[in-house]
Amino acid sequence: MKLRLIGGIILFLIVSIAACQSDADQDYKRYFTGGANIYKQKCQNCHGNNGEGLTSLIPPLTDTAYLKKNKNHLACIVRNGITEQVLTINSKAYEGSMPANTDLAPIEIAKVLTFVTNSFGNKHGTVAVDMVEKDLTSCP
């Protein structure tokens, strides 16, 4: 009887954890899929199908350490672009500009960042929309 009770509790715990996970999981999946579409429209021409960039002209999106270190700047880069700056990506210097995407809403920026930071060898989890909104208030 006791064993049954313990078994029941364990089962309950497993089910609730799984449910919780699948909630977050669903969010992640929605962001990721939506982000993949935005990436295709806004980023892929330059950064490539696999985030590989283009020779020394356009940086790749595979520098996972860079993405992690600059994670609070990424939203600003997507929205405002980059003007004549040198970025060091995968220990290689890239000089130039990136166009702004002022038509993207914070939710879209969150989605595309979720896609980029979880593709091409990156695995950083969901970029939440409130995080993006907060980051956007302190753009340079």
Binding site: N45, C46, G48, L54, I58, S97
Partner: peptide
């Protein structure tokens, strides 16, 4: 050279 739309993909293919 400053083309943000189709040029990068054209020259990726031209490479």
């Amino acid at each position: 050279t400053t083309c943000p739309s189709i040029c990068p993909i054209m020259h990726r293919n031209m490479l």
